[in-house]
Design a protein around this nucleic acid. Structure first.
Length: 840
RNA sequence: GCCGGAGUGGUGAAAUUGGUAAACACACGGGAUUCAAAAUCCCGCGACUUCGGUCUUGUGGGUUCGAGUCCCACCUCCGGCACCA
């Protein structure tokens, strides 16, 4: 056996072997012990760098580990293949998106293979292929039939650079999450999914997700943004000239109805639907219209900046507060959002925004909540009092605790019929229309006579045309394809037109985990029996950047698909693991997430050639806790390489010893001390790693533990003339190292496994188990502390009683020096750990 | 402002959940081997020290025989939400 570690010879060999052996192909129907290990499928952007690799390496390690534990592991892989980069490439180079995408997939598939990440390619899904998007379209139609897909005209986020609309989730700090262009507001007719119908369930079911990171659940909770409050109808004071209005009241939403006796005006959003009607013909009309126009010019960015000066106009109309009959002014304010009802009752004394607005426009301020000390004096207030307290000047509610008053006053409003308790969500419906080519066409037809009609299921898929011109303009390229646009009405047979928008790519990725389970099924989207058997996914692995978008949409889809009766579970992912990003210092010396634009990518090719896949894998897992960000350091790779070389050498140099060992593990009692120590260390390592890997992903410490075991193996100093039992213990330790490291560095493990005389296919070997007997110690080292400081160490028998330990500790030589002349006040004996002597 | 997470050597980090702080590595320094280099092996590596020790887990208090870990107050950083009424 060559003593130099020949990674370049063995890695490809074993990758071929795994393929040929079908080790990663899983029979979904017959598997008895299913374990679904899923990695977020990538967008085929071209090339993966080592930062991307973390996701797949972690996933592969989990899959191999679970396989060795006897599970029937399913690890599929696919491609989130629709999306803008392919289309932009088409605009730039003229390469059709399909061609570009297919080429990238081929490259990335090779890269995954070169990393030793093996998948069940029989179940590959590619979201841009007709056999996939047919079923995406089918699901759209089911959503449509259930009233969960609808079209409406509304203000939407428009990215001028991407030339398409965006979902709220895709707008980050007022800019497009993809290209960082400032997003405009534009009124357009667009398709939406009614995710708001599922807001409560999406919120409630977060409770069930014990295997999800807390921070992801919190992010989703914030995003859904539930708030409980009260709607109150304020009657509009009729016009003096007797003219009628369309409406007779304005409804506001508040979470603080307890402060309503302090309400001194009402403010509506500039976009408030009835506003223009309410001001028609009034002297204030022009001024207010002007104001509305000004406000609409404010971009998202301006609105989100804290500095935006609150501004507003009196509309000329008045309302009646139904609780006390007071007449108040109706204002329009730029600080009021179209949230709730778009109208807010203003209580300057108890809301900081209303306070500054009232001060600016000299509106009245009334105190209606008093603090516990009754120390609030209106004239002295410099800001609103927003804490809890006691209602004052609030008619029959005066003296009531304000939290209690919310209940009482809501009930009162319901009894009187001018208000009601209600719940509001921050979550908006999901805008899925995209004015782009490279996505699944929305399967809808417009007929002049019959209106909007879904494409009949038998006509699916609605194929993307190829006779299109790619341009970065504001219209879908599909509009330019006559062959696509012109069709017949499925109902009346007359000429009709197709919808030219395509679906957001997040629609594709919201159900791909179900499609892996029926990848080749031409007759149905979801195989119910198989899905119920394999889902929810046991372990999902991906980046934290999907905490809201993808993970929320996938949960929504799962719930809808359950309601369609196709599956019997309502959460898609049991355990979720979000790995941290890999960063590297850029040319400017700052640390960035690895990306082309920062010029700090490390591509795997060079590393694989220099060190091999196992080294890259081992370093990636050893770099730090996998859920945290990590800084890539090239010298660290060297360290991983050194360790693998060391394992290899230890086997190669002792090959004959390892080969000649045939005997079984001898009795513990017949082992020399050094042998027992190593045998114990081997079992401790197995225990530690297994505990770490179950539930948590402590790869970094698992690898450290294997390194420690290697250090212990070297302590034994095995040689040809060592005793038979030493050789057995040595071999057992080496074999354990090979098994334990195999999920992380599978190629070297396979090779050494065979060198140790086993059949090829280490992933089908059993994960090592702990011999409890071996863990026991005859003698234990105890620390002796005096007043909590370590002063001495003693060795005692493992069976020693507390009394014996105490006695031995007290007489320990060094401890004695610290006890001299002191009064012993207390002695604490912690068996197996330490003795602490408290003196004064 | 609200919510979540973190702060430990030159660096990445460990610490059986209240029990020897710094495991395992990286970097660095010294030595062996070598004509030389690479590779490999051995030793050292928190700070101060009068070589007895003393101090040390963001800061300050507290609980405890004992605190990186628990409690209180504060500081800093990261992430999410945010004019949401």
């Amino acid at each position: 056996m060559n003593e130099n570690y020949p990674f370049n010879e063995i890695e490809n060999k074993w990758q071929n072997f795994w393929d040929g052996n079908g080790d990663f192909q899983t029979d979904l129907a017959t598997a008895e012990n299913p374990y679904y290990c899923l990695m977020m499928f990538p967008y085929p952007s071209g090339k993966l760098h080592v930062g991307h690799g973390r996701n797949y390496i972690i996933g592969d390690a989990v899959a191999r580990y679970k396989k060795m534990q006897g599970f029937d592991v399913l690890t599929p892989m696919g491609w989130d293949a629709f999306g803008l980069p392919a289309e932009n490439a088409a605009i730039k180079t003229g390469t059709p998106p399909a061609e570009y995408t297919v080429a990238n997939i081929a490259t990335m598939k090779e890269q995954l293979r070169a990393w030793g990440c093996m998948y069940d390619w029989d179940k590959e899904v590619t979201s841009c292929m007709p056999d996939y998007y047919k079923w995406t379209q089918w699901l759209f139609i089911q959503f449509y039939k259930k009233g969960l897909a609808y079209k409406k005209n509304s203000n939407v986020n428009w990215c001028p650079s991407c030339a398409t609309v965006l979902a709220n989730e895709q707008v980050v700090d007022g800019v497009c999450e993809r290209c960082d262009s400032e997003v405009d507001q534009k009124a357009m007719e667009q398709w939406f999914f009614k995710i708001t119908d599922y807001a409560q369930r999406l919120l409630d079911d977060l409770e069930k997700l014990d295997g999800w990171p807390e921070r992801v659940k919190t992010m989703q909770k914030n995003w859904i943004g539930r708030s409980e409050g009260t709607e109150v109808d304020f009657k509009i004071v009729p016009r003096e000239n007797g003219e009628k209005d369309h409406i007779d009241h304005v409804t506001c939403y508040t979470t603080r109805v307890d402060t309503i006796y302090g309400c001194t005006y009402m403010a509506v959003a500039p976009e408030y639907s009835e506003l223009k009607n309410l001001i028609k013909g009034l002297p204030q009309e022009q001024e207010v219209l002007e104001f509305i126009k000004e406000s609409s010019k404010l971009t998202n960015l301006d609105r989100e900046a804290d500095e935006v000066e609150k501004a507003g106009k009196f509309t000329g109309r008045y309302l009646i507060n139904p609780y006390n009959g007071e007449k108040i002014e109706l204002w329009v304010g730029n600080y009021v959002l179209m949230y709730g009802t778009g109208a807010v009752m203003a209580v300057p004394a108890h809301d900081t925004r209303d306070f500054s607005f009232a001060k600016k426009y000299d509106l009245p301020i009334k105190l209606s909540i008093q603090n516990q000390e009754s120390s609030l004096v209106l004239e002295e207030m410099e800001d609103a009092y927003t804490e809890d307290g006691i209602c004052v000047d609030s008619a029959q509610f005066s003296g009531v605790d304000n939290r209690e008053a919310i209940q009482q006053m809501t009930t009162y409003a319901e009894e009187q019929g001018f208000g009601r308790g209600t719940v509001n969500f921050r979550l908006r419906d999901w805008l899925i229309s995209r004015q782009r080519y490279w996505g699944a066409p929305i399967p809808v037809v417009y007929c002049d006579d019959c209106g909007v009609l879904p494409v009949p299921e038998s006509d699916l898929p609605v194929l993307l045309p190829t006779d299109v011109e790619f341009k970065a303009e504001g219209e879908s390229p599909l509009k330019g394809s006559d062959s696509f646009m012109n069709c017949t009405c499925p109902q009346c047979g007359k000429a009709a037109t197709r919808e030219s928008d395509t679906m957001d790519t997040f629609v594709d990725s919201s159900w791909y985990f179900l499609r892996y389970l029926s990848a080749c099924d031409d007759f149905q989207a979801v195989n119910t029996a198989i899905a119920n058997k394999w889902m929810p996914v046991d372990q999902y692995i991906g980046g934290i950047e999907h905490a809201i978008l993808h993970l929320l949409y996938a949960r929504f889809f799962t719930k809808v698909i359950k309601d369609l009766g196709l599956i019997n579970f309502d959460e898609p992912f049991g355990q979720l693991f979000t790995q941290g990003m890999i960063c590297k210092k850029g040319p400017d010396g700052n640390l960035y997430k690895m990306s082309k634009s920062k010029g700090n990518v490390v591509s795997p090719e060079e590393l694989l050639q220099k060190y091999g896949a196992d080294t890259v894998r081992l370093y990636t897992l050893f770099i730090g806790p996998p859920e945290k960000e990590a800084e890539w350091q090239d010298t660290g790779v060297e360290g991983a390489y050194r360790f693998l070389k060391r394992i290899w050498r230890r086997v190669a140099l002792n090959h004959s010893i390892l080969e000649e060992v045939k005997e079984k593990m001898p009795d513990l009692s017949s082992m020399a001390d050094a042998e027992r120590d190593l045998y114990r260390k081997t079992n401790e390592t197995i225990q530690q790693i297994t505990r770490g890997l179950d539930g948590a992903f402590t790869f970094n410490t698992a690898i450290a533990a294997i390194m420690e075991l290697m250090n212990a193996i070297d302590q034994l100093k095995i040689a040809e003339d060592s005793s038979e039992s030493a050789k057995i213990v040595f071999r057992d330790a080496i074999e354990s190292v090979v098994l334990l490291i195999s999920p992380f560095a599978p190629h070297i493990a396979e090779e050494l496994w065979v060198e140790l005389g086993h059949d090829a296919g280490i992933m089908n070997a059993d994960w090592p188990t702990v011999n409890e007997e071996a863990l026991k110690r005859d003698e234990i080292e105890l620390v002796i502390q005096v007043n909590g400081k370590v002063r001495d160490k003693i060795k005692v028998s493992a069976e020693a009683s507390k009394e014996e330990i105490e006695e031995k500790a007290m007489s320990a030589e060094k401890a004695q020096q610290w006890l001299e002349g002191k009064t012993i006040r207390k002695v604490i004996v912690v068996p197996g750990r330490l003795v602490n002597i408290a003196v004064s």
